[in-house]
């Protein structure tokens, strides 16, 4: 495992994604709210490009005190990304499938050194 230079942080805007190849691995690198995340771009369902679909806030149901539903809302803090093939939805911060946390994309560490972004792969 070695640190591989991806790009300058100043050229990587918030909300942007880069799909990179390191050797045999295809990796999606995200910048979300200033943080970097990197996951394998192979969907755990059928190998689709997991990191290239929509990024969408997590849908949550808000309940009143008596547990009656107030309806469905988009989360203000949790963001997911969706595989464009059949809609597997993964947590931006962990790479876990939102409906089954045991299903998890391979996560790569991202290191920033000054203005440089590296993926450990």
């Amino acid at each position: 495992m070695a640190e591989q230079f991806v790009c300058k942080a100043s050229e990587f805007k918030d909300g942007e994604r880069q799909i990179i190849r390191i050797g045999e691995a295809e990796i999606g690198v995200f910048r979300h709210e200033g943080e970097f995340f990197a996951y394998s771009n192979y969907c755990l369902h059928q190998g689709g490009p997991a990191c290239e679909g929509l990024t969408i806030a997590r849908v949550e149901e808000r309940l009143r005190e008596d547990k009656t539903s107030m309806g469905l809302y988009f989360s203000e803090k949790d963001m997911n990304f969706v595989c464009p093939w059949h809609g597997y939805e993964y947590d931006m911060r962990t790479g876990e499938h939102v409906a089954d946390r045991r299903v998890k994309l391979r996560k790569y560490d991202v290191v920033t050194k000054g203005d440089e972004v590296y993926v450990v792969a």
């Binding site: 991806v6 805007k13 909300g15 880069q18 799909i19 390191i22 295809e26």
Partner: peptide
């Protein structure tokens, strides 16, 4: 090059 950038997906 060890890292090959395949695609850049811009922010919304």
């Amino acid at each position: 090059p060890k890292v090959e950038v395949l695609r850049r997906i811009p922010a919304p």
